[in-house]
């Protein structure tokens, strides 16, 4: 029998921490009549850095040194890139890439 009370506390604490990352920036900068230019500039350019950060974050547990040397990831990412450049349809590329990746990690490697 799991300790449900403890589990609920953990969920609430982690929820509060997650909420803080979403609301604190607004509480700090949101009240000013004018947001500083620097903050506006960061708001414009940060989205362009965030995707790279998220891609690396998603791949953080992949090891190039150990077998299978990140091959499933490389192949599936190549498939996502090629299909996206071809069709420009994100859903198509995500489905193709994910199905291919699942096949690779479950059946091939």
């Amino acid at each position: 029998m799991p300790d449900y009370r403890h589990a609920l506390i953990i969920i609430i604490v982690m929820g509060a921490a997650t909420l803080a990352t979403r609301i604190l920036p607004v509480l700090i900068f949101g009240r000013n009549e004018r947001i500083p230019d620097l903050v506006l500039y960061l708001g414009r350019v940060v989205p362009f850095t965030a995707m790279g950060l998220l891609i690396v974050y998603c791949l953080k547990d992949v090891s190039v040194l150990q077998d299978p040397h990140a091959l499933p990831e490389v192949i599936a990412l190549a498939a996502v890139t090629v299909t996206y450049l071809w069709k420009k349809n994100p859903i198509f590329s995500v489905v193709m890439g994910t199905v291919l990746y699942m096949f690779l990690v479950q059946k091939v490697f």
Partner: peptide, 12 residues
Amino acid sequence: GIDFAMTALFTT
């Protein structure tokens, strides 16, 4: 391997 959907979305 279904988590790869996130990686793929960010990549597009």
